[in-house]
């Protein structure tokens, strides 16, 4: 039980840091912490082999999303200058 509680606590802390951080690019590492904690919590809630697949799918999807956001931000910055 304490494992799940710790995962949820870390996810909540990182979510607060995401919203409170001012710089756009420095939000992304906190979002990465959120997705780590949530992927761990999914497996801790449902200990089933399909849960590993679901956690991997969620993690890869979240990583792809941050990758796309960061790449578009970098490309858009160059285009404006």
């Amino acid at each position: 039980m304490i494992e799940l509680l710790l995962c949820a606590g870390i996810a909540g802390y990182a979510a607060l840091r995401v919203v409170l951080e001012r710089n756009t690019m420095r939000k992304l590492p906190f979002l990465n912490v959120v997705s780590f904690a949530v992927a761990g919590a999914i497996v801790l809630i449902v200990p089933h082999p399909l849960a590993v697949l679901a956690a991997a799918a969620y993690f890869v999807g979240s990583t792809l999303e941050s990758n796309a956001i960061a790449s578009t931000w970098a490309g858009g910055g160059k285009k404006d200058e």
Partner: peptide, 10 residues
């Protein structure tokens, strides 16, 4: 990727 470089610069 270019996003990783942008995060590093920030």
């Amino acid at each position: 990727v270019s996003g990783a470089t942008a995060i590093a610069q920030e």
